[in-house]
């Protein structure tokens, strides 16, 4: 596959390491009353859909960016590639 890196342009997916569901960005609040339950869901209940999926890919043999790749797991079509850091900020992970 070719992943269109937001900074570097098209790169062979062989340069990347895969980590699955990008919901891993949404780490729960450890101080919440429901933290135990939230972290259980976070650690174990990830999506693995047949179809569109936001996934984490690490450009290990490149610029060491974590990316959020929106990929169709059936056709392998890639619709969007974003820097995970930007996604994390957009989802309110800035401290």
């Amino acid at each position: 596959m070719i992943i269109d890196h937001p900074l570097l342009g098209p790169r062979d997916s062989a340069e990347f390491t895969y980590m699955g569901d990008a919901k891993l960005i949404d780490r729960p609040d450890p101080d919440a009353a429901t933290a135990a339950r939230d972290f259980y869901d976070y650690a174990y209940l990830r999506d693995n859909p047949a179809g569109w999926h936001d996934e984490l890919w690490f450009h290990e043999q490149g610029d060491r960016s974590w990316l959020v790749v929106t990929r169709n797991t059936i056709t392998h079509e890639i619709r969007q590639v974003r820097l995970a850091r930007d996604v994390a900020r957009a989802r309110g992970r800035s401290t």
């Binding site: 980590m19 891993l24 960005i25 984490l56 960016s65 995970a84 994390a88 992970r93 401290t95």
Partner: peptide
């Protein structure tokens, strides 16, 4: 560590 830095603590 890069995951934590970029995805969990992007503004550290």
């Amino acid at each position: 560590m890069e995951f934590v830095r970029q995805c969990l603590a992007p503004d550290m």
